[in-house]
Design a protein around this nucleic acid. Structure first.
Lengths: 126, 126
DNA sequence: CTCATTTCTTACCTTTTTGTTAGTACTAAC
DNA sequence: GTTAGTACTAACAAAAAGGTAAGAAATGAG
């Protein structure tokens, strides 16, 4: 749980309020958000589809990060009143505006790997 | 300290190896790295200058993040053999290639603030 | 010999993030 | 009444990140 008076939390908030980069990082950062956004960038997906397609993610993490992305208004959650339940996730219009940024990040990450010759070459986690 | 057999660490590594976005995030993310990069993007700076110019950062954090950026080859550390010591930090060529990505992040962060009408409008932490 | 200056280092603690496991709610089909 | 399928929640534990405070090395100035 958040303790929003800790120095830690205050620092974060300050950076968020004054620096676009910090804000972007807060929204897009975190272990699984890149993967989620990558999937949803191509198409709407159900909860279960996301879970299956993202290797290694736990339900707790998937739900948590979906909720955060939703709060940040970059994705939306559509519930169909059926049984068993069906819930779809998709990018919002605001979410779609991330495109150029996400691409820039992806490209630079690949460039960095190339230049530093690190690790296995990426066959993107698709 | 890193425990590189934890599930957590393995997940991170996997994402790093397969996803450019994840890799970029790891290099540029963290509480203070955006601020450091922002400063160094304009000019070479001494340790003490960085410390003074980045509001709220502790020495431990400053050193730690500088070290990480150095390891990732985006900044370099130049030591002048003087007393008292003088150490300068500056972007490497690889570091300079981050330009478009950092701008994209900054721009999107600002756009997001605009669209969601959140918080104080940013007078960038300069 | 003491002090000031600069760039860190170390030890310890708090906060935040991530992972593990088990369980819930709903209803239709058997 | 039990089971199956889907999308979660809750409680707890481990790991990582961040914060605080004190100290260390090196040396020229006084």
């Amino acid at each position: 749980m958040r303790k929003d008076t800790s120095t830690n939390a205050l620092n974060e908030k300050f950076i968020n309020d004054t620096c676009g980069m910090g804000r972007a990082l807060n929204i897009v950062g975190g272990r699984w958000k890149p993967a989620i956004l990558y999937k949803l960038y191509r198409t709407t997906m159900r909860y279960g589809e996301l879970k299956k397609s993202i290797d290694g993610i736990s339900e707790r993490m998937l739900v948590a990060q979906l909720r955060e992305l939703e709060e940040d208004k970059v994705i939306e959650r559509i519930v169909y009143p059926e049984v068993p339940p069906r819930v779809e996730y998709r990018l919002t219009d605001l979410g779609r505006t991330m495109g150029p940024m996400l691409e820039a990040m992806s490209n630079w990450g690949d460039l960095h790997r190339e230049k530093t010759g690190d690790q296995t070459k990426g066959s993107s986690n698709d």
